[in-house]
């Protein structure tokens, strides 16, 4: 108790991003050294720096460690079922296209149980920004292997090592037709922040994969050291290659170079534009644009 007293209790100026965080819920539930909080910080700075209307910004999360992001953001936030953040967000966006809708969830949530929804939203080019936090395993349930776990890595359900090929997420999103695709690590906070701003300005489907340390489960089980060591690893072993061919950016081994950067940024009519334009063209004067889109 004595030692605590050395913490200064004098009033401090507010961290500029705190207006976007439900500070009454801090400290958050993520483990020491977990990178999800870093990505959330990058997201809040992107929101502040882009000057986006915060009252028109909704965040939808699924289930899992990253699924808890929605609950810590002081925005209109939705914490829905496992894997279904994307279709919920699709309904929300179509119900009110003036909303900026961000899906913020983990690799297991979005790519395993929610994989079908993710590829179809990318195909339709629904104007959503998907921030996928990739920590290479299921954290909330105790570190089971998942669809992004590298070959031979250990997981709670891969006690002898993983023998399934992982997804190359940027490549997958590329062939599905996403309008914007990037990958960063949580060490690359400045680039990540800029990338989130760019992604939110797209009229189509934008996708950012964020590589994140999971110190208590993935790193520990694979004897990769602590979170700090992993952050230094990410700093030293990531190579920025903007515009890289997405098929070349797979992460299949536990250790090795990680290609990061903005891979895809293309113009392709978003779902709302397609729907509106097509029906207008075909139905002419009979077409009634949804009145709730105008408001």
């Amino acid at each position: 108790m004595k030692k605590e007293e050395s913490i200064s209790l004098e009033p401090r100026p507010q961290n500029p991003i705190e207006s976007l965080i439900r500070v009454e819920r801090l400290p958050h539930m993520w483990c020491p050294g977990c990178g999800i909080g870093i990505s959330m910080g990058a997201f809040t700075r992107a929101v502040v720096e882009s000057g986006i209307d915060q009252n028109s910004l909704s965040v939808v999360s699924g289930i899992g460690c990253t699924g808890r992001v929605a609950g810590y953001l002081r925005l209109d936030t939705f914490h829905v079922t496992h894997g279904r953040a994307v279709p919920f967000a699709t309904g929300l966006k179509l119900g009110n296209p003036k909303l900026k809708v961000v899906v913020y969830s983990g690799d297991g949530d979005l790519m395993a149980i929610g994989g079908n929804h993710l590829i179809h939203a990318a195909r339709r080019n629904v104007p959503l920004t998907v921030i996928l936090i990739n920590n290479f395993n299921y954290g909330m349930t105790g570190g089971q292997f998942g669809p992004t776990t590298p070959m031979e890595a250990f997981g709670a359900t891969a006690p002898y090592g993983n023998y399934e090929y992982p997804f190359n997420l940027p490549y997958l999103m590329d062939v599905c037709g996403a309008a914007y695709i990037a990958r960063w690590t949580v060490y690359h906070v400045r680039q990540l922040t800029r990338s989130i701003t760019e992604a939110m300005s797209k009229d189509g489907f934008s996708f950012i994969e964020v590589i994140t340390p999971c110190p208590e489960l993935y790193l520990r089980r694979n004897r990769l050291g602590d979170a700090l060591k992993e952050m230094i690893y990410l700093k030293e072993n990531s190579r920025i290659q903007n515009g890289a061919e997405t098929r070349t950016v797979a992460i299949e081994k536990i250790r090795g170079e990680i290609i990061i950067g903005k891979f895809v940024d293309r113009e392709r009519p978003g779902y709302i534009q397609s729907l509106d334009g097509h029906l207008q063209k075909v139905l002419g004067a009979r077409y009634q644009r949804p009145p709730f889109w105008e408001k």
Partner: peptide, 13 residues
């Protein structure tokens, strides 16, 4: 420090 902190516990201006 503020950008890399996972816990919103430090920042500088």
């Amino acid at each position: 420090c503020g950008m890399i902190c996972p816990d919103f516990a430090i920042w500088s201006e």
